[in-house]
């Protein structure tokens, strides 16, 4: 396909289908994330950059034979490798033998929260997640450095990229409060059902992006100014890190939540809640600032 717009839309549909597949494979949290990130944010970011770089792709000059050969050989080797793999859904597969049973058996007693994914994410593997959040923060910083946080000049309230769309405006006006409310629910309910900071941050940012797209370029910037966002992202990381440091100061290992309250169980709850809040703030700020940076830039001649 030479039309990159169509490619971007197809990729969005592909992501949505992947999310459905994850749901079918019992990965509710992951399906949630993929639907919000893949189908929502990635498509918007792709379209924003297409606006800056041009919609049409040139016909390739090279013959596709050599790449096809490389791909074919690699694919055949990988398929040969799969012949020894455990079968789909086999409970005896090696992945299910080592750490996972420990989490499933002990998470209810140790953490007291029903969603094991959240327990592993925020507590058992808190270090990993801190690292991941830092990667997201760094990526946001790189986009800033490349594009500038306020590139494109002053916001132009009231001017939309899509023109006057009364129906769309009305629908979005009704929807946005629910989107934001739902994001807060996902944020705070992550311990009990599917959800958590990552999803909530992305959904909250999507609400703002929708507002910006339909109600005028720059209108969202009046609600959440672009200059807040880097500070907000850093604040999110700070919340996460200071929970860890607080434990260190009390002579316990980094990110040991039991120091947060008298009762270790309450401490763990509080710790997970705070950490998820930090993640949510950081992800929201980074996603929104990336959108601002890409959408605020004017196409240069």
């Amino acid at each position: 396909m030479r039309d990159l717009f169509a490619v971007a839309m197809m990729f969005g549909i592909y992501s949505l289908l992947t999310a459905a597949l994850f749901m079918d494979l019992d990965a509710a949290d992951v399906a949630f994330t993929e639907a919000a990130v893949g189908a929502g944010v990635t498509t918007i970011l792709l379209l924003s950059s297409l606006r800056l770089t041009g919609r049409w792709e040139r016909r390739p000059k090279h013959s596709p034979l050599l790449p096809l050969l490389v791909v074919g050989v690699t694919g055949a080797a990988l398929v040969y490798g799969t012949l020894d793999m455990p079968h789909l859904g086999d409970p005896q597969a090696p992945v299910h033998q080592h750490v996972a049973p420990h989490y499933i058996e002990n998470a209810p007693q140790e953490m007291g929260i029903p969603n094991i994914v959240t327990a592993v994410l925020a507590s058992y593997r808190g270090f990993d997640t801190l690292g991941e959040t830092l990667v997201i923060f760094t990526a946001g910083l790189s986009v800033f450095l490349l594009l500038g946080s306020r590139a494109g000049g002053r916001p132009r309230p009231g001017k939309t990229a899509i023109g006057e769309q009364p129906v769309l405006r009305l629908v979005v006006k009704v929807l946005i409060p629910f989107i934001l409310l739902f994001a807060l629910y996902v944020q705070l309910h992550g311990e009990y059902g599917a959800g958590g900071g990552f999803q909530a941050g992305v959904i909250f940012a999507t609400g703002m992006v929708l507002y910006d797209l339909v109600f005028g370029e720059g209108d969202a910037r009046l609600v959440v100014p672009a200059r807040w966002l880097p500070r907000l992202a850093a604040f999110g990381i700070l919340v996460y890190g200071s929970v860890g440091l607080y434990a260190l100061l009390h002579g316990r290992p980094f990110l040991d939540y039991t120091v947060l309250a008298e009762d270790p169980m309450v401490g763990r709850h509080l710790g997970i809640l705070l950490v998820e809040l930090g993640i949510g703030i950081c992800v929201f700020a980074v996603v929104l600032s990336i959108f601002y940076a890409l959408s605020g830039r004017r196409r240069q001649p």
Binding site: V30, T33, V37, G38, R125, E132, I136, I290
Partner: peptide, 18 residues
Amino acid sequence: ANPLPHVLILTAIVVSVA
């Protein structure tokens, strides 16, 4: 279902968009 791959991929998806 095994929660560990879910955790890894959940964070990986958000990192991938960044």
